[in-house]
Design a protein around this nucleic acid. Structure first.
Lengths: 251, 251
DNA sequence: TTTGACCTTTACGTAGCGTTAAGGTGTATG
DNA sequence: CATACACCTTAACGCTACGTAAAGGTCAAA
């Protein structure tokens, strides 16, 4: 299949000016020039353009792309794998930004607090600076990075202060629960304190607190074995006890 | 908290040149100038800068940003919601690109075929062209409040029949989730199906279903490591993916 | 008092095109 | 046949969002 400049441009979603410019700088010369001086592109150019657009999407400068693609060691398969990795990183960054915007929304509604540092989560793009390392060199970390990335994402989104509070709340809940469980009375002051702590705790994670949802979660603490196992770890029956305390609390 | 130009720059991950330029074009003048002529930024400027960076991330031109943010009708909450929407669109585009690169990889290995048109999937960005529509206009569809489900409270004790249904639902969710995760797109039909199945599932436990509570639970799926561990057991990132799917589902 | 990390303004440079302008080519239609 | 019209060409200037000096004030610590 052969393409004129416009047909290739509209195929790829770029302007004809862009294609002429890429020709001008030697990044993507057409396969041939016909008798009227028209640029004619072929299959190889289609594939090269795709490569170029991947690099461009990742913020690589055009002269760098030229350098990379004209190198004798250029390996399409390897390049594609690099693209994949970088695109996933970029998506992760976007996920951070989305988490950021969501927390900022909660902030405007007074549902949470946010440190100034948090407000710029996801914006700092070492990504582009790192392009040289990634595309210039061979070595890269393994896929384990992704797991680390994602687990960090949730912590990053929480200020250090918040994180400490949440951790302390978890501890307090466990203590209050263990003690009040001994009384056997979910209406007792201590059991209700545990329920209240629990409310505070979920308030860190939920966009807005409601009694119904809290009660619903309590039901699930018994229905869902994941929870049951967690709460009953020390003492069988604790999950059920907490559920009862919360049901009373939210009544 | 007050910031000098450099402290704000490093906080936000931009250059001091950028901040001076933003001052120069009237996009972000400092809160005040001290006796030595230094720019001093305050809390309001921190928040404005965050807004600016969101717009910039989405490819909005600086003069347009100035125009938007100095308008008397500018509403931070509304802007943030727009950001969220556009960021999600951008992430969707990235997911397309990732799918594209993966298919291209398969192509180089001779495992598949690919039309020239497919090769540019995800590159065409109507995104930026649409910015005016999204940011230029005021009116946005307000998501209509769904009539509250006034059904009776669910009984904790399930019938044998219910139990089987619930067990099957759990299995279905896992399957739908695992499959849709591969697409990487929480808006995909399959991912939304998973979210719907999840709704049915919690409806067995909750006294009444509400979108807010559902969304809240979704948040917790990422925030609470018990859930995260459960969903990420087979595939890291699944909890996050489910959260995104539910957040879209409940929007 | 000197160092060195800050800050200032001014000004020129740049990447990656967008946008005319002035003109040639190809073909379908009156 | 001509003429309209959608294509193509080169040339050249313009633009955005800064990067990068250069030349010089400010300020806390040594």
């Amino acid at each position: 299949m052969e393409y004129t400049i416009q047909s290739l441009a509209s195929l790829a979603g770029v302007s004809t000016r862009t294609l002429r410019y890429y020709d001008e700088i030697g990044l993507l010369p057409p396969a041939r020039i016909n008798s009227s001086g028209y640029r004619i592109y072929g299959q190889a150019e289609v594939n090269q353009l795709q490569q170029i657009l991947f690099y461009r999407e990742l913020g690589v400068r055009l002269d760098k792309i030229t350098e990379l693609m004209t190198a004798p060691s250029f390996d399409v398969g390897k390049a594609l794998e690099d693209h994949r990795e970088k695109l996933i990183e970029k998506r992760d960054r976007l996920n951070l930004l989305i988490a950021n915007v969501e927390k900022s929304l909660a902030l405007t509604e007074g549902r949470t607090k946010m440190s100034d540092k948090e407000k710029f989560n996801g914006f700092k793009k070492k990504l582009i600076e790192d392009n040289e390392k990634v595309y210039g060199q061979e070595v890269r970390g393994k896929y384990g990075d992704e797991a680390v990335n994602q687990s960090n994402a949730k912590l990053l989104n929480m200020s250090q202060e918040d994180y400490e509070k949440v951790t302390k709340l978890e501890q307090d809940i466990r203590t209050a629960l263990a003690e009040s469980f001994l009384t056997g009375d979910p209406e007792s002051e201590l059991a209700q304190k545990a329920a209240d702590l629990h409310k505070q705790w979920i308030s860190y994670y939920w966009p807005q607190y409601s009694k119904e949802a809290h009660a619903g979660l309590a039901q699930m603490y018994v229905a869902d074995e994941r929870f049951t196992a967690y709460y009953d770890k020390e003492q069988v029956g604790t999950a059920e006890f907490l559920r009862d305390a919360i049901l009373i609390y939210t009544k």
